[in-house]
Design a protein around this nucleic acid. Structure first.
Length: 415
RNA sequence: GUGAUCGUAGCUCAGUUUGGUUAGAGCGCCGGGUUGUGAUCCCGGAGGUCGGGGGUUCAAAUCCCCUCGGUCACCCCA
């Protein structure tokens, strides 16, 4: 990094090929899986009125200190989206699509945080939401869709599952827990005390050793009969699909709006503290929070940057390589024409600029990874033909009439 | 937000402890090794105001301060 006058902002990165190629592939696989399950894409704004997000998680860190907010020229308080569920909900309330409504999305999200392994200020998420049903089958479908995605891209994940109770039992439990923890406040770590004032549920997630005893003695969430039945149903259906999961009563999630089913996807080969590659759950009270009708919902979000990080170790996804490299001697125009024709036939083709020496061009051809090099020089032009060299095989060169070139190449490339 | 650590060619780094002639290596890049042929090999070349700013000194990549950025942990989360 010499002395560039400008560089990318803190916590934000440029992604070059071939890394970007892998990423594209992963995104395509997600889109395909979502469509296969009948989800339609929703393209949302990257920023919203700040209220859309702040309403939804007043006590969360995401809203309290990680919001990338700004004032526009009309003095409106806006925020770059830190997540998309709230945006989806806002769009739903605004346009009222027929329910049950299933959508998927993909795009950049922003959180004003100190960057770290697997954590950036701009990061890419994909996700789905199902609105207008509390059928446990929806929970299961959503989880199995994510599981299928991870399987397709070859990323090992552990599915962690919990139930946070319905809107009412969750609220009741929150009170019980708050009372209990407040009573023992002075025994808690300073960190936990701070968390307690924000969200008692998340104290259960404390990793401070001294808090362990207090946490283990804490009253447990009692699911109502309905909530328990719902949860059992979700589990049963997951089992019927052979989707393995582990239960964890401590799983709480970062946003406050979750109710009933909550889940997380933990990358098995990521040992950094940022090993959650995705998460989601049910949010049956969210619509009302944003001034909408009563409307149940369930969904998840998956962090693509982190997923890619987890994938790096396994390198399961291969990127495309070039098919043909055209080297030319005094025939640049013909080379361009030929490249255009081959591309038309969906043969990926490249040639070099700047009229370089044949030797230089052959070196480029080799480095480009092309399977075949073509030479278009005076001799070939005279005979209306092209020299075809199979780069990955021991010296294998032949002269092919230009009219037969396409067919010849297709045969070589498909062999 | 708290803390640690790093920042020298496009990349990976040496040199910083014990300040001192034109700042090095490997890889990569460009060119050449006779007429139009890739890996390998040989030869040559380009490329750095040592992240930026200030200070100490006869002298700073090397010491001090500030700042920006990277990395990592805590917090939290995707």
């Amino acid at each position: 990094m010499a002395n560039p006058k400008f560089q990318s902002p803190k916590g934000v990165k440029d992604i070059f090929s071939p890394e970007s190629e892998v990423r594209r592939k992963v995104l395509d696989i997600f889109a395909k899986q979502a469509r296969l399950a009948g989800y339609g894409e929703i393209v949302l704004p990257l920023f919203e009125d700040i209220g859309v997000f702040s309403r939804v998680g007043e006590s969360t860190e995401i809203v309290q200190k990680q919001m990338y907010d700004f004032q526009d020229k009309d003095n409106r308080q806006m925020a770059l989206r830190p997540e998309s569920t709230a945006s989806v909900m806002r769009a739903f309330i605004q346009h009222r699509p027929v329910t049950p409504w299933k959508c998927w999305y993909e795009g950049a999200h922003f959180r004003y945080e100190k960057p770290q392994a697997g954590r950036f200020r701009q990061f890419h998420q994909v996700g789905v939401e199902v609105l207008g049903t509390n059928d446990p089958a929806a929970d299961t479908e959503v989880i199995s869709l994510a599981a299928k995605f991870f399987q397709e891209i070859g990323c090992g994940v552990e599915i962690v599952l919990n139930s946070l109770g319905g809107v009412e039992s969750r609220a009741n439990y929150l009170e019980t827990l708050r009372d209990y923890l407040t009573a023992r406040n002075n025994e808690l770590s300073a960190q936990a005390q701070k968390t307690l004032s924000l969200n008692p549920l998340r104290v259960l997630d404390s990793k401070v050793e001294g808090d362990a005893a207090i946490i283990s003695e804490a009253p447990e969430m009692k699911l109502s009969a309905d909530d328990q039945k719902h949860f059992d149903d979700v589990k049963e259906k997951l089992e019927s699909l052979n989707i393995a999961y582990t239960l964890n009563k401590r799983l709480v999630r970062g946003l406050d709006y979750y109710t009933r089913t909550a889940f997380e996807f933990i990358a098995t080969n990521l040992d950094s503290s940022q090993d959650a590659v995705g998460g989601g759950g049910r949010y049956d009270g969210l619509s009302e929070l944003l001034g909408g009708p009563k409307c149940a919902g369930v969904g998840f979000a998956i962090g693509i940057d982190r997923t890619l990080l987890a994938l790096e170790e396994t390198q399961k996804i291969s990127t495309n390589t070039l098919d043909v490299f055209i080297a030319y001697v005094g025939a640049q125009t013909e080379a361009i024409q030929m490249a255009t024709e081959l591309r038309q036939a969906e043969i990926s083709t490249e040639f070099s600029f700047d009229n370089r020496s044949l030797k230089a061009q052959m070196k480029l051809a080799d480095k480009s990874g092309a399977k075949v090099a073509l030479i278009l020089g005076e001799d070939e032009m005279k005979q209306n033909s092209v020299s075809v060299i199979e780069l990955r095989k021991a010296s294998n060169q032949s002269l092919v009439p230009q009219k037969d070139l396409k067919a010849h190449l297709l045969k070589l490339l498909n062999a």
